[in-house]
Design a protein around this nucleic acid. Structure first.
Lengths: 343, 343
DNA sequence: CTGAAAGCGCTAACAT
DNA sequence: ATGTTAGCGCTTTCAG
């Protein structure tokens, strides 16, 4: 691929002039500029960003690490982040940690080696310890945590108010007259899963309904686990709960699968509310009531926070901890009054 | 962030020795190596890949451009590609063209400017012309086309045998006794959509069933379009077809939505087969019969083709045109014999 | 086995 | 307004 030196030779000017034309930072006379530009076209010149970065010590690139790009929640966040990055003239490199903290550390180091100017991190989680040491924080470019906010460290973050969001979903079920509301969670090693569980407890307490341990089903992101747990819970001798609340989309989808597999229907046999869109969202018959997170905004805002930190360059400023509200979309699965029966 | 020069000073050796230790290309005595390595730890050194790339003219990075990362089909391909890249020690940068050819050209140029060593492209399509000029082919790093193979240009590609795959789906419906089989397609500007339509025709012809234009419904990726087209087709005066075949997941999902919205059930009122997993795949009640593409393999194989091209460096070799088979997963939606009715 | 030095392509003084 | 030049961090000869 052509270099500026070659352009200079072809255009009959110096390398510095070529650079001036291309970067646009210094005025160049019209005649020379034209010559350079036609050389650019002739040689199909593409600036070497690597060389430019080495010189300027800037890459205009942001990195992002997500636990699993095949979970629909994450591509939506990626979209928002990419959009915000592009608006401000930055590129975004997206990497997948595959729920693996060791790999996450590798990815972070890779991004640092690539000299990205900031990193958006949805922590892989797993163990507590893992969450708290996401690859030796404290050096390298700024990090904004999204979705999963680490406990303890003072860092920028953008997430949903999990407790309030869960409370909203559970309160909705209470308002519909349910008192036997079970909850199926994701892995409780994740702080936001814990918070959602707290929101559940809070809603019950405020509603004057006792919290019963037998209705709290700690789950995971694993398909079979969730199905097994739900199966046991739904068919337990004490009788099944009248409602089930799922704290994330992956778990919620499997929970719904279990309900169907047990030959039950929502809301006829059991009311159901879940966090997140079940990919086909309004598609289920009956429709599934969901607590929706503002996915695009999470990504978008996170980039704004990151770029403000980068460009304003105030390293010791107090962290931005942005909490976005979720919204409740009420559909039939939580509605006692119109039990539809459609295949 | 620390540089090799700083390491050298701390370790009391020359910069060249530090480089030798880090790259591992030249043997360094144990004593010096230890010193360097402890300096690495002390300064939390991260090699500057930018500088390395500038020198070596290698980035060990691959680029990938997809039309829409939020369509579940693509993250699955990305997974396969990332996995293969990692196996061979390459990084993968994923970009989203948002179905927009102009943006696709930008993304390609960006990747070239970043000096990626090869590009995996799922073309944005749209207009024919767009497909045929994916950003001035012929210079820059090698390109492997996935999923959507350009007409005319001789290039490496990895895709599914669309015609055969569609034929398989339609033949299945014929075998179930259907003769009034409608087809709803994606945008027919895409060659693979055309091929799938040809597969439909071929299956009918081989089955001795006349092809009727009124049963061919050219669609798009647009939600409302598809719903409108299906609505019209399903409620047409001539009576609705006995089966519907959808040529991709996005269109298929909307088609199914239309079926439900019209108060119909599969397979009771109409049999239904679609390309691609409907995100919740085996979840629908009744289950949806699907033509499944080997998504992970498509990405994985594409990286292999690309890296072979890069590393073997045979520029004028005849192109690899890999066609992977799809598989048919038969579920209830196409089964006349056991019309379940479950909500 | 180690050190010194050149140079990858580009930008940004500085000099003309 | 244009040309000249140093140097970003690294690898890689080439001497020693």
């Amino acid at each position: 691929m052509a270099t500026q030196k070659e352009l200079a030779k072809l255009a009959g000017v110096s390398a510095g002039t070529v650079s001036n034309v291309i970067s646009g930072s210094v005025r160049v006379s019209k005649g020379y500029r034209e010559k350079v530009l036609s050389a650019v076209r002739a040689l199909n010149y593409q600036p070497n960003l690597i060389a430019r970065s080495l010189k300027t010590n800037r890459t205009r690139t942001l990195g992002m690490v997500v636990p699993d790009i095949t979970i629909p929640f994450f591509p939506k966040i990626v979209r928002g982040a990419e959009s915000a990055a592009r608006e401000r003239g930055y590129f975004l490199i997206v990497l997948d940690s595959e729920h693996n903290h060791a790999r996450e550390v590798d990815m972070m180091n890779l991004l640092r080696s690539q000299r990205v100017e900031g990193i958006l991190l949805v922590a892989a989680g797993g163990s507590k310890e893992a969450l708290e040491t996401p690859g030796s924080v404290g050096y390298g470019p700024p990090i904004v945590y999204l979705d999963r906010v680490p406990r303890g460290i003072e860092a920028d973050s953008v997430s949903v108010d999990d407790r309030k969001a869960a409370e909203m979903g559970v309160s909705h079920l209470l308002a519909r007259g349910h008192t036997e509301i079970a909850i199926i969670t994701g892995p409780l090693t994740l702080k936001n899963e814990q918070e959602r569980l707290r929101g559940y407890r809070q809603a019950l307490q405020r509603g004057g309904v006792p919290v019963r341990d037998s209705l709290i089903w700690p789950g995971s992101f694993n398909r079979d686990d969730v199905v097994r747990i739900c199966h046991r819970g739904l068919l337990r001798p004490a009788g099944r709960p009248s409602a089930l609340f799922a704290t994330n989309g992956v778990t919620g989808l499997e929970a719904l699968r279990s309900i169907y597999a047990a030959g039950l229907e929502t809301p006829r046999d059991i009311a159901f509310v879940t966090f997140d869109e079940l990919t086909t969202d309004d598609f289920f018959q009956p429709g599934i009531t969901s607590v929706l997170q503002p996915t695009f905004d999470i990504g978008h805002r996170a980039v704004e926070v990151l770029l403000n930190r980068i460009e304003k360059g105030r390293p010791n400023r107090t962290p931005d901890k942005i909490r976005l509200p979720a919204t409740l979309v009420v559909r039939e699965s939580s509605d006692l009054r119109s039990p539809k029966t459609r295949p």
